[in-house]
Simulated scan of single mutants.
Amino acid sequence: MSNNDLSITDKIIKNTVKEELLNKYSQNTLLKGLVQIVPYGGLVDSVLTSSYNNILIARSKTFFDELGLGNIEITPELIKNEDFLHSYFTTYKAALYTKHREKIRFFARLLKNGMISEVIDDVEVYDDYLKILDELTYREIYILYTLKGFEDITNYTDSKELNHWQEFSSKITNDLSITEEELRLFLMRLMRTGCFVDVLTFAGLGAKGYTSTLFKTLSKLIELKEEDLVHFIKI
Rank of each mutant, 00 (worst) to 15 (best):
G204M: 09
F89I: 15
L43N: 12
N155K: 11
L183P: 04
I57Y: 01
D228I: 14
V125S: 13
N28Q: 08
G42R: 10
L183K: 02
L229N: 06
R184K: 13
T49I: 02
I132G: 01
I153T: 00
S26N: 08
S219G: 02
F202K: 13
I233H: 06
Y52S: 04
E161D: 07
K14W: 08
T211D: 03
Q36M: 13
V123L: 04
E167D: 05
E167G: 01
E102A: 15
R189T: 03
S7M: 00
S50I: 09
I13L: 11
R101L: 14
A94T: 11
F215D: 06
L21I: 02
A207K: 07
P76M: 08
E226P: 00
W165Q: 01
K131N: 15
D128F: 05
Y138N: 15
R105T: 15
R184F: 12
E182P: 06
S60G: 06
D134C: 02
N15C: 06
H231M: 13
Y40S: 11
R139T: 06
L43T: 06
S50C: 02
V47K: 12
T157G: 07
A95P: 12
T146W: 02
I153K: 04
L67G: 09
R101N: 15
G194S: 06
S177E: 10
K99Q: 14
W165H: 01
E102S: 15
L183F: 07
E167T: 00
G41L: 05
E82P: 03
L111E: 15
L162Q: 06
R101S: 15
T90A: 13
L218Y: 11
V197L: 10
D128H: 07
A95G: 15
L205W: 08
V125F: 02
G42D: 08
F84G: 13
Q27V: 05
L183E: 03
L6A: 04
L176C: 04
I55E: 10
D121F: 02
E223Q: 11
V119C: 03
H164C: 01
M1I: 08
S87D: 12
F168A: 00
N53F: 00
E180N: 08
W165K: 01
N163Y: 05
K225F: 02
W165E: 01
L30N: 12
L185A: 12
T154S: 06
Y129L: 09
S219I: 00
K171Q: 10
I37H: 07
P39V: 14
S2C: 11
I132N: 09
I116Y: 10
L110I: 14
E182T: 14
D122R: 07
M1W: 01
E223D: 12
L56K: 08
S212E: 09
E20T: 04
L43F: 11
K220N: 09
E180M: 10
Y210V: 05
E102T: 15
E226N: 09
R139V: 04
I12S: 09
V199N: 12
R105N: 15
S60V: 01
K171W: 01
L144G: 02
P39I: 13
S159W: 00
